[in-house]
Write a protein that binds this DNA or RNA. Sequence first.
DNA 1: ACGTAGCGGATTGTTGAACAATCCTGCAAG
DNA 2: CTTGCAGGATTGTTCAACAATCCGCTACGT
Lengths: 232, 232
Amino acid sequence: MTATDPWVEMLAGDRGLLDRTSTAERVADLLRQRIIEGALPPGTRLSEESAGRALSVSRNTLREAFRLLVHERLLVHEFHRGVFVRVLEAEDVSDLYRVRRLLETSAIRYAPTADHTLIRAIEDAVAGAELAAKEDRWLAVGTGNMRFHQAITALSCSPRVDEIMSQIAAELRLGFHVMSRPREFHEPYIALNREIAELIAGGKYKQAERALDNYFDIAEAQLLDAYAQMAR
Amino acid sequence: MTATDPWVEMLAGDRGLLDRTSTAERVADLLRQRIIEGALPPGTRLSEESAGRALSVSRNTLREAFRLLVHERLLVHEFHRGVFVRVLEAEDVSDLYRVRRLLETSAIRYAPTADHTLIRAIEDAVAGAELAAKEDRWLAVGTGNMRFHQAITALSCSPRVDEIMSQIAAELRLGFHVMSRPREFHEPYIALNREIAELIAGGKYKQAERALDNYFDIAEAQLLDAYAQMAR
DNA sequence: ACGTAGCGGATTGTTGAACAATCCTGCAAG
DNA sequence: CTTGCAGGATTGTTCAACAATCCGCTACGT
């Protein structure tokens, strides 16, 4: 057999799907899910013993999972006190939007030379959010919106940017929990996203960038407003 | 006493310096140091038992430290095989430079409104590299160069951008190890950095951005060349 | 009543040992 | 040259133990 058989690299790509799952990672996946969907609200403490007993894993394994999520900023670890679901402060919200603004507006500059499938992914994400809205699944609308913005940064064609962005998305979800009415929060952005997507697809990149900047102004202000109201 | 005494938040800032050091984190700090300074070359395997015995820590603690460094991409973890010092591929180099280009050129846009101390930090970093070059400490020149670029991204005034950038710097160090002659690699950039720093300090932001882009072209090409030569 | 010092319980930090699961190496058979 | 199969070594995971630390409570003195 030659060294460059065509099916070799195909299988090499599937390699990761095989077993690469340690218990700690699966525990981390589970906790991450519960956190971003709100089942574990910000501020709750995760006791090693209770959580370990509930999930039937040892303390050591659980601690490994905790470390992972702490590094993703979904948990905070206070020395000799335990781990807590992160509570996002107003400054965190500002910072997250600053990074998003940076990454997403820069990503649009890659749009002219981007593969068509990437443009398509952006439109698909918008369509997904619109469909979820029509069916009154407002939590799904939120995930669709985030998928839309991740599709924009995906224009950069950078695995690292993708990872940073998905972490930011998860982190931002922590902040969404302060919004009591998900519909009022997520609904207005669907039309905005649709507009941005069409500007990109139509090649009007400068306008798209401006619309995106405008979106950030509005979204950040609304979230910060909710924070300010909660403080009272 | 009032609720907003001036010294309160000063002490709150020092809070982190108190005890916040777990054994796992200190082990991770040590290993990180050894990795980026090249004492642990890319590809070397870190056996849990040997490393644990050498550092006098238990396997569990060591594994926690490993997890941290794996998440920082300085180590790779292969299931049931162990952890290895990451070997940076050519695609990784490209990706790292793509992210740097994105972050640093965007950061310059914050320069007009940035605090003066941030501009000063940029010049200080250049001066540090120049001093190290004069004393023939070429490894220090490399760190000075990286500090210069971190000072540029610091213009964004975003803790998250700072952290991303310092991680990228550490990761890029892994790639520098392929350069056999550190002097030939680091020296040319000192003058370039000086030029960029003065353009920023002089308020010529557009030119600075162009010079920076030019720097990335050169640096990335040189590193990729070294990779291509090594492949033969 | 108020602040404080100290005590005891609970939780985390870290270690060490143990066992199952998996991988690597070398050798023998085809 | 490939295949199959032990045997040893390493990792994955659990468990139990102890030290260090934090939290809440009580008792005390003013």
